[in-house]
């Protein structure tokens, strides 16, 4: 009998220990998740996801599908990216999520329109993408159906995007840090080129909507909604060559230009939702990187 009691005790102790261990592991996993969500929120702001995927002015729910994006190719309606399994991305695996950003492909393999700026996001690291996914999956699911894009032919033929990607999409993914440059420069390049996708508006595009690589950030006469988007290379006369690093960081923080103007249109939204929420270090890194770029004047 004594031995049976001893066995019982051992079993109970073992059970309690196991429960405690499992509980601790669970708590550890939750803490890791919470960290990923917190990092993901920063990336979400830096990458400016909210603006396009939410119909803010139309009173739409956050991330439940965006306002109309008018382009020369037709009107895009950015999809629902809440974790709703039916209408959102709730059924996307980690691999699906990474593939969309890295390769511009939907989970079913179909090509995504580059109105979703994956030519920039392709440079995001796997870890950042999964942190971003963790944040998006922590948001409220919204059962709102997506609105189909309204595109003119031949741009409505999605299979043609295979050719577009072949012509314009650099598939090398994240760039390794340049050891010859300071960490601030490397961080600035990541924030500008990958997360902030600044080039998507500030670089002119070809007839078929590819970015003109040799005029990177040199301004776009036909930007979103027909706006002229300025040259942000350090060209003294046509770009921001006369700006100090403080001029650049103050604009990113407040929207104020060195002339005392306050930026409007799409950039006002970028400042409100994105650059004002960056850390001061990241804003300084953006300034350092922009000032290191080759100055580009107007086209000949």
């Amino acid at each position: 009998m004594a031995s049976r009691a001893a066995v019982k005790t051992v079993i109970m102790v073992a059970a309690v220990a196991l429960a405690a261990a499992t509980g601790l592991a669970g708590a550890g996993a939750r803490a890791a998740d919470a960290d990923a969500v917190r990092r993901g929120e920063y990336l979400f702001n830096a990458a400016g996801c909210l603006g396009c995927h939410t119909d803010e002015k139309g009173g739409g729910k956050p991330l439940a599908g965006g306002r109309a994006l008018a382009t020369p190719f037709g009107t895009f309606y950015p999809p629902n990216i809440t974790p709703d399994p039916e209408h959102g991305i709730g059924r996307w695996s980690d691999a699906d999520f990474i593939r969309a950003f890295r390769e511009g492909r939907a989970p079913d393999g179909s090509y995504l329109y580059p109105a979703f700026p994956y030519p920039s996001y392709t440079r995001m690291t796997d870890r950042d993408l999964l942190d971003l996914k963790a944040y998006l999956f922590s948001r409220e699911p919204v059962a709102a159906a997506n609105r189909p894009h309204d595109l003119s032919m031949p741009f409505s033929w999605r299979f043609l995007l295979a050719g577009w990607q072949w012509l314009y999409f650099d598939t090398r993914g994240p760039r390794p840090d340049d050891p010859a440059k300071p960490p601030e420069w490397n961080r600035g390049r990541y924030v500008v080129d990958a997360l902030g996708h600044c080039g998507e508006c500030h670089t002119p595009r070809t007839t078929f909507g590819g970015m003109e690589a040799d005029r990177y950030l040199a301004g776009n006469p036909k930007g979103p909604n027909g706006d002229k988007v300025p040259n942000i290379t350090p060209q003294p006369r046509f770009g921001i060559g006369g700006w100090t690093p403080g001029d650049i960081t103050l604009l990113l923080e407040t929207g104020l230009t060195p002339e005392g103007d306050v930026v409007g249109n799409a950039m006002a939204e970028v400042v409100r939702n994105s650059t004002s929420k960056l850390t001061a270090d990241d804003r300084a890194a953006v300034a350092a990187y922009l000032q290191s770029l080759p100055p580009i004047g107007p086209p000949p």
Partner: peptide, 12 residues
């Protein structure tokens, strides 16, 4: 920053 935001509302 507060004044800039107020300006930006209308400019946007």
């Amino acid at each position: 920053q507060g004044v800039s935001k107020a300006c930006a509302n209308c400019h946007e």
